[in-house]
């Protein structure tokens, strides 16, 4: 009975998790394509702004917290025994970072350039409890510059 529940949970979380992930990636790709022409760099302003007059400068942020599902955790736990690349968590981290960066870029629509972009990530789950699902919190920030 206990076992049946466990398998049901695995199957259920696999289905729901993969559907959510697929949709999320689709959305991310669509939004990234829309923002294709708004450039973003991670260094300072010295070289790039000297020729044109800057009319507006502001700090822009984007945050996202994405959690892995039960199935992904189970697979990663098994992978931890054998070692190697944890593919199930790679997509979680990738989604969180891209989502945060996208939110930052979307809040800077109208600016010409985002300078000195930094990406910070922390795990907000309880690291002492091995059963807790990884929750990846990412914060992206930069300076949006608008030319005349």
């Amino acid at each position: 009975m206990d076992l049946l529940l466990f398998f049901l949970l695995l199957v259920l979380t696999f289905c729901s998790g993969s559907i959510i992930e697929k949709n999320h990636f689709k959305k991310i790709i669509k939004r990234e394509k829309a923002l294709l022409r708004s450039p973003m760099v991670n260094f300072g302003v010295k070289k790039w702004s000297s020729k044109r007059k800057v009319i507006d400068t502001k700090l822009v942020y984007g945050e996202a917290v994405i959690s892995a599902d039960y199935f992904k955790c189970f697979v990663a736990g098994l992978k931890n025994l054998f070692g190697g690349r944890m593919t199930s968590f790679e997509s979680v981290m990738d989604r969180a970072r891209r989502e945060a960066i996208l939110r930052m870029r979307e809040s800077a629509i109208g600016s010409h350039l985002i300078l000195n972009v930094k990406v910070e990530s922390i795990m907000i789950n309880d690291p002492k409890n091995p059963q807790s699902v990884p929750q990846c919190a990412v914060m992206a920030y930069g300076t949006a510059v608008t030319y005349e």
């Binding site: 450039p39 760099v41 054998f82 190697g84 790679e90 990738d94 960066i101």
Partner: peptide
């Protein structure tokens, strides 16, 4: 650093990134 010493930057393509998660065996 923001430049490459001895070279001139002629064009920029924006942010690129790479990430991975790896583990060692038990």
């Amino acid at each position: 650093i923001e430049t490459i010493p001895g070279m001139k930057i002629v064009g920029q393509y924006g942010l690129v990134s790479g990430s991975t998660v790896r583990a060692k065996n038990a």
